[in-house]
Amino acid sequence: MPKHASPVRALFLRLVLINGTVFVVGTLALALSPVTISSPILLTEIPVLVIGLALILVATTVLLRRSLAPLDALQSVMERVDLLRSRDRLPEDDDHDLARLITTFNAMLDRLEEQRSVRSAEVLAGQEAERRRIARELHDEIGQSLTAALLSLKRVVDRAPAALQWDLRQVQDTVRGSLDDVRQVARRLRPDVLEDLGLASALAALAAEFTEAAGVPVLRTGDPVPAGLTPQTELVLFRITQESLTNVARHADAEKVTVSLAAGPRALILTVLDDGRGGPHVEGAGIRGMRERALLVDGELTVSSPPGGGTLVTLVVPL
């Protein structure tokens, strides 16, 4: 076949060649064999014709099946391909007529994954910028307004008659609680501790905050955070841990959570394991968002249910 022939034309020529070869071989076998066909056909000649036809059909089927086998593999990959999961490609064989089709399909998946990664990076960067803006407004505007309200309430409480003091202190406590809530939301939106103190301190603060809010203890194990991680890698690890803990609080009904960070020579492995209800997982926006973040650092995220129950989130980031 011509090296640069289109896949359709090459496949067409292959099918024509297969059928023509089988027909020629069958004709030569019939012409050179001692078998004779009478007219009308005798009953003793019918088995010979049936056997010959069966051999032709078997040969044609085997040859066509071998030629069209890559199409089955292509269909299988098309049915299971997911741009948020690990790379899935067809093996390329330069000797096959469908080699260009397979190469083109693999190249298409490469382009789609690259475009998806670029778009995800842009969207997530926009989200982080919006988080920082909202956190800054919460801290600088609403936080300062609530602080000013607390100071004013303190002056009012100091001058108020004794009959109103208890009610005013209740209002003061409510405003103080609202201020704490605003600061907590701002910290979740913009992890200042990650920028100031690094990933280890940020994960420790995140675990403490989760335990305080959800009442579920978090056990941190594993190796020290390796030096030299990029800010993007640290942010991805932090956000995936944060989202995993959020899912535990919402869905798991767990009594304990273990967060582990293992540093190997070639990869960094983050695991978040809870002892909750586990079971089949429906991938919603949260898990798909974690997969998109993992792709930003060429990582692979898996969500599974261990035999002992609960849910295990694993992120593998190559170093």
Rank of each mutant, 00 (worst) to 15 (best):
G286W: 07
R133S: 14
A149N: 04
A29Y: 10
S38K: 04
G126Q: 01
R66Q: 09
R190A: 13
A227N: 11
Q165S: 00
V157G: 09
N106H: 11
D82W: 03
H4N: 07
H251F: 15
E234H: 15
A29N: 12
R155F: 05
R176P: 02
D196V: 02
G284I: 07
P34D: 15
A54S: 10
P224Q: 11
A54D: 06
F23P: 03
L55G: 07
T230V: 08
P217C: 10
V171E: 01
D158K: 09
D180I: 00
S76D: 11
S76I: 04
A107C: 09
I142R: 06
L151S: 08
A267I: 03
T44V: 11
Q144C: 03
M1G: 14
D253Q: 10
N106W: 10
S145T: 13
E122S: 07
D140T: 15
G228Q: 15
L237I: 13
L112M: 10
R65S: 10
G310C: 06
A285G: 02
L273N: 06
T258L: 05
E234A: 15
D140H: 14
A163M: 00
R87N: 05
V317P: 11
L301I: 10
V248T: 15
S201V: 03
R288G: 02
L98K: 05
V157M: 03
P280G: 09
R190K: 07
M78S: 07
D180F: 00
G284H: 10
T241K: 12
R288D: 12
V218W: 04
T103V: 12
A59P: 08
H4P: 02
L98T: 00
V22G: 08
T230D: 12
L194T: 05
D192K: 11
G284A: 00
G278F: 00
L296Y: 06
R288A: 03
R85S: 00
L30D: 08
R176S: 04
L164P: 09
R188K: 12
T271H: 05
L13D: 11
